[in-house]
Each structure stands twice: as structure tokens, then as C-alpha cells.
Amino acid sequence: MKSLKSNLKEKIAFLKLKSGDSEAFGFFYDQYLGQIYRFIMMKVSDQQVAEDLTQDVFLKTWQHLVDQKSLSHFRAFIFRVARNVVIDHYRQSGKQNIPLEHISETVDEAVNIDKKLEIKVEVEQLLQILQKLKPEYQEILVLRFVEEMSFDEIAEILQKDKNNVRVTLHRALTKLKQLSEEKI
């Protein structure tokens, strides 16, 4: 959890960034480089590719600011860019299908998914199971539990409805649990 002070610091930097301060962009770079790299690395599993794509993400974000387009939430925005950059990468290399988007789901499926789920797997095992899930599930689990994002933020990144996010997350968790039980 971020402290109030660091939150304020980020907000000040964000306002400065919007006025075109490149030094403020340096602040965001330091703040988010680790998270973006990790997010991409989890998707591509190749250090060189992850480094190239991470740099691409920051350049694209800056370009967006230069073009004077609106930006309301930096973290959600940069993760969205990261996600699109990875999709573009796979599209160009043709290695993997682009994750399925906008599966119609109903709200009533959403249950209390924040409830702690007891799974007896080791970290490496968890990683293997995670990689077996479809990209859409992987992504939502990583955003929720690794990056500790709110449903609002995830919804903004995935460009989905908040309830839709809840349902997908629930499905992803169920699948994860099922696979881990099989593994055990």
C-alpha cells in the first residue's frame, strides 16, 4: 500500500508530466519500470524480448503524452500499453494467438473471489500452472495478485466492464485451483 505522501508525490509528478516535464517522466520510469518489466517477462519469458518491449512501452507512453492525448490514470494506462505491446509482439512473430477478448458473462456468476484460497503448491509449480492457463486468465491473475490492482484498474487496463472482470477472475481462480489439484 502506498503512503499518502508517496501518493501525493506521484500526483504532483503526474501534473508535471501532463505539462510536458521530461524529468517527471523519469520519476514514473523509476516507479514503474520494475512492474512493467515483470508483467511483460511473465508473458514472454525471454529477457531480451522483455527488455525491448519494456522500453517500447515507455516510449509509446511518452509519445502519447507528446501527442497531447488525455490521460487520467498513469498506472492503468501504462499497463494497457504494455498489454498491447505484448499482443503486437505475438501478432508480429505469430507465435501465439491473441488472447480472447470480451467473452460475454453474467454478473450473477461473481462470488466472493477475494476469499483466501488455500492451495498447496510451491512457487515454481504455481508458475507452471499459471503458464498452462489461457492468456486472458494469466493476465487477470497477475494484475490482481502480483500487481495488487483494484477491479477498477484492471477493468481500465483490459477495457472491460468491472463485473466482467470479477467473473473472469473467478473463472481463472477456479481453473487454477483445478489444475493445482490435478498436479498434486
Binding site: L33, M41, I119, K120, V123, L126, F145, V146
Partner: peptide, 22 residues
């Protein structure tokens, strides 16, 4: 161990940390 804790561990795996020089 809860899922959250396992994911937190996953987060700190060395292979997901960016190289300092880079």
C-alpha cells in the same frame, strides 16, 4: 499457504526482476 502469499513470492522471483545495468 494462501494464494496471495504464493503470488507475492512469485513477484519476487529473480527471473522477473529487471537487470540493474540495463
Amino acid at each position: 499457504m494462501s494464494l496471495e502469499k504464493q503470488f507475492a513470492k512469485l513477484k519476487n522471483l529473480e527471473k522477473f526482476q529487471a537487470n540493474q545495468d540495463w
